[in-house]
């Protein structure tokens, strides 16, 4: 385990000059803890994974978690969505506190249908707002919902839509080879999560 009080300076000093430069830029968003994520912390990702899995659940195709939607959101929070950073940090913390207050458990530990019921209330505005600062619970949910759709259906270059899973789900050929994608319809192909093609 890495000591959490480990300072950034000490961390950098342990590394050789060349790699240090790379790691500094890689970890700019990480002030106190070492995280494999760009902005979000490990626990935040755990909670976010549970939320995005609710927004796009697994059925015969993988859901938001498998498709790396949380990675998409984390990547955007470090680039295009820098101005949403505080909203995520405060919103996730407020959400977690509220759920613990209501259910005496963390959101990600609740059974799936119970999680769904919580988010439905949140979306409908029927949710305690005492821990929220600038943003409403409903607004926060809608933001995550929209970002999840982007992460699941957008190009994998942005960190989500792992292996073009949503295109596979919709029966859209991929990648879009210029002028060549006229020959078949893939939607008849049953998704097999154990195939090499699908990452296992």
């Amino acid at each position: 385990m890495i000591n959490q009080s480990f300072s950034r300076r000490e961390f950098v000093r342990l590394l050789t000059g060349g790699t240090a430069a790379v790691l500094i830029s890689f970890n700019t968003a990480c002030k106190n803890k070492i995280s494999r994520w760009r902005y979000l912390q490990e626990e935040e990702i755990g909670l976010l994974d549970a939320i995005v899995e609710q927004i796009i659940p697994t059925d015969d195709f993988p859901g938001g978690k498998w498709a790396n939607v949380s990675n998409y959101i984390d990547k955007q929070l470090d680039t295009y969505y820098i101005n949403h950073q505080v909203e995520y940090r405060d919103g996730l913390a407020a959400f977690e506190k509220t759920v613990i207050q209501l259910k005496s458990k963390k959101f990600e530990e609740l059974p799936f249908p119970e999680q769904t019921a919580i988010l439905e209330k949140m979306e409908g505005g029927d949710f305690p707002g005492e821990y929220w600062k600038a943003h409403s619970p409903a607004g926060f949910f809608d933001m995550i919902r929209q970002h999840s759709m982007q992460g699941f259906y957008g190009s994998p270059v942005h960190g989500g839509n792992r292996e073009y899973i949503s295109y596979h789900m919709l029966g859209l050929d991929y990648p879009n080879v210029i002028g060549q994608n006229r020959y078949n319809d893939l939607s008849w192909r049953k998704y097999n999560p154990n195939s090499i093609e699908n990452g296992k």
Binding site: I55, M149, Q150, Y153, L170
Partner: peptide, 20 residues
């Protein structure tokens, strides 16, 4: 695909199983 995720009859649930 992303654009289509917002194309729904009014009143539809925009996430979860309904969405997918």
């Amino acid at each position: 695909p992303y654009q289509f995720s917002s194309i729904r009859p009014s009143g539809s649930r925009m996430w979860g199983k309904d969405h997918k």
